[in-house]
Write a protein that binds this DNA or RNA. Sequence first.
DNA 1: GCCTTAAACAACCAAGAGGTTGATAAAGCA
DNA 2: TGCTTTATCAACCTCTTGGTTGTTTAAGGC
Lengths: 119, 119
Amino acid sequence: MDSNDALLDAAFTALADPVRRRIIARLSRGPATVNELAEPFAITKQAVSKHIQVLEQAQLVTRTRDAQRRPVHLNPARLEALTAWIDQYRLVREGQFRSLDAVLHSSAAASGTQAKDPS
Amino acid sequence: MDSNDALLDAAFTALADPVRRRIIARLSRGPATVNELAEPFAITKQAVSKHIQVLEQAQLVTRTRDAQRRPVHLNPARLEALTAWIDQYRLVREGQFRSLDAVLHSSAAASGTQAKDPS
DNA sequence: GCCTTAAACAACCAAGAGGTTGATAAAGCA
DNA sequence: TGCTTTATCAACCTCTTGGTTGTTTAAGGC
């Protein structure tokens, strides 16, 4: 459908891995190289490099050149796009669909019945 | 921490699929059955049922019983947990790390020298 | 009772993701 | 010029995921 959908896809996929989430967390404290990012993990640098490629493809990070180093930077703008998407549904009208629920179950004649608290 | 990490993992994994995101969007307008959710898609109901299982495992949706129907409900609380996680890094200190960048640049004259990584 | 509907379960398959090892490229230092 | 560091590329392997078909359970409707 949209290209926006493809970007959402890439971004959520990128965050769906604990290693990549830890990389994001680390980068929020400043840029880092692949070697630095790989250090806390028990996997090879090649594997970390692949993870960074996934993050880069999702535009969650960018890479610059500094001699033979390739510092990775966080791109907070993309993270904002994710919260924007989630907020569409997160803000959702508890009231509205609780009342619909009440109708469907209709087990009680709701005279001013308030929304029940979910368990 | 770890259990929370597992939940984050499940939730982001769940949102990393366009079909599941559309299911979320649909559910934000009220509960629906598997058949209703499957209707707009060109895949089998079994496949949709699996998608719902993934969403349920991530606690993004819940299922109730209504005779032989199993209406699926959105769980906005879990979505909030996701934005909470992202906000940790989204709010990130552009200022802070821009200034850090500036410091590193200025440490060796202005032009030509690139910033080195902190860590 | 019998038949339909709603939905889950089970086995299976193709494709992709995460990981490895090994080789390669580019930049800096001896 | 080598040699080291940094990081990517290229195969390859294994496990998971998204999908299928077929069967089974559960609840109503006739």
